[in-house]
Amino acid sequence: MAETTQFELVSPERLVLSRDVEMVVIPGSEGYFGVLPRHSPMLTTLMPGVIDIHEGGSIVDRIFVAGGFAEVTEDRCTVLAEGATPLAEVDVSATEKTISDTKEILKDTSDAVEQEKLQEKISNMEAMLAAKRLVG
């Protein structure tokens, strides 16, 4: 069996995924990068995008993350995601509806902090939809 690295995906609420993988591709803020075993240690921020888990030369899992951080060491790769949704579970029409609903709420809020938060939520969901459409 090929060498593996321990991949962990954690969201604030729970440990989403923990498994040994051959390679993961992570949406870093400076571009997508692949992590193989014995990758040099690095810390990076993430952009909204899709994490691909490769095994045996093909993608076995695709998970959308709405940003966060990744820590890579030689034997381990930890992703702190702000929200993680398996791409297969993304419901396009439901998400579209949430986006338009959120936009409605945004129009009615005057609080700056709240506005910023909603804006982020919308852009995250739009990124999720874009990712979903790209994969088809």
């Binding site: 803020s29 400076e30 040099s40 240690p41 690095m42 810390l43 990076t44 921020t45 951080f69 702190l80």
Partner: peptide, 20 residues
């Protein structure tokens, strides 16, 4: 204690990480 590479850079990550 290991040496890390940083993307974008330490400051950039810190300013994103601290509010989180």
């Amino acid at each position: 204690k290991a040496l890390y590479e940083y993307e974008p850079d330490e400051e950039g990550i810190l300013s994103a990480l601290l509010p989180r």
